[in-house]
């Protein structure tokens, strides 16, 4: 419930900043707070005040406005990367599970190879090869999450595959693609949806980490990771510079995690029954 509210809020802020930036030329945010791109050398590293609720950075830019605008990158990267990863993972997982060996063997060993790298290291390596840029960040993070979705889908499809309605569908002469897409997958979606939400949270952290390391999107864009990276030098003198983008990350990730938890409780009656049984 709380998670849902936070996530809806995050999406709303992201949507607001996207519309404001592309369609309204940042008029709205300038009117409300300040232009997130406008530097002011007379207002460097100002503490939070009414004029600058979150303070300003070393170039005199308003941190509140930049934090709001940073939401956009996190949400876009998170959604696109996890969306891409889940699409690819679901296809790989269902094909490997449905057709069994040897396709299963080959597909799953390929996933094992990807899983054998520490995820952030793999993303860093991919970014080093691909270079900076929004689409590269999305791609690098997506690759890291493909095996997770492939494995979850595979295990679900494997267990659904032996259900009688799948046998009935085969006895009715349905083509394999229909059996997988219409019979098996709709019955396997629950854990995939839950994993999607949790992966959003970790993908947002991964995006921030890449940006923090200077491997993310172009540094002119305000993102939480880039802001944190800039704040590092001033951490002892200007606490607000690192606290607010950090809080934004924390609240967003917490929101997605809470949403994932409540989705799991709502969608998985088995687990719910277990939880009640323990009480």
């Amino acid at each position: 419930m709380v998670g849902g509210v936070i996530v809806v809020g995050v999406f709303a802020v992201a949507l607001f900043s996207a519309i404001d930036d592309f369609l309204l030329n940042r008029q709205l945010i300038t009117m409300l707070v300040a232009d997130p791109y406008e530097t002011d050398r007379f207002a460097r590293l100002l503490a939070p005040s009414l004029e600058h609720p979150f303070g300003t950075d070393e170039q005199g830019r308003d941190i509140f406005a930049r934090t709001l605008y940073g939401t956009r990158t996190s949400v876009v990267v998170g959604l696109a990367a996890v969306g891409f990863a889940s699409a690819v993972g679901i296809v790989i997982g269902s094909v490997t599970a449905y057709y069994g060996d040897p396709i299963d063997m080959i597909g799953m060993r390929a996933m094992d190879v990807l899983l054998s790298f520490p995820s952030i290291l793999l993303a860093i390596a991919l970014m080093a090869i691909l270079g900076r840029g929004l689409e590269n960040v999305i791609f690098a993070i997506a690759i890291v999450y493909v095996p997770t979705f492939a494995r979850i889908t595979r295990s679900e499809v494997l267990s659904e595959k032996s259900e009688q309605y799948v046998g009935a569908a085969r006895a009715m002469g349905y083509p394999d693609t229909n059996i997988v897409s219409r019979e098996i997958l709709p019955n396997s979606l629950t854990p995939i949806i839950v994993q999607f939400t949790f992966s959003m949270a970790t993908a947002i952290i991964a995006e921030a980490a890449l940006s923090f390391l200077g491997l993310g999107v172009s540094p002119i864009h305000p993102t939480w990771g880039i802001m944190l990276s800039g704040a590092r030098q001033y951490i002892t003198s200007a606490w607000w510079y690192s606290i607010f983008p950090g809080l934004a990350i924390m609240v967003t990730v917490l929101g997605f995690n809470l949403l994932g938890d409540s989705l799991r409780d709502a969608l998985d009656p088995q687990q719910q029954r277990d939880a009640e049984g323990r009480m």
């Binding site: 009688q164 309605y165 009935a168 569908a169 085969r170 006895a171 002469g173 083509p175 019955n187």
Partner: peptide
């Protein structure tokens, strides 16, 4: 596959599990 379900069809033991619940 074209034969299954149209020329030869099958009825299963437990109807509760033989239909797709979704």
């Amino acid at each position: 596959g074209a034969l299954r379900g149209s020329d030869i069809s099958m009825v299963f033991q437990d109807p509760m599990t033989a239909f797709n619940p979704t």
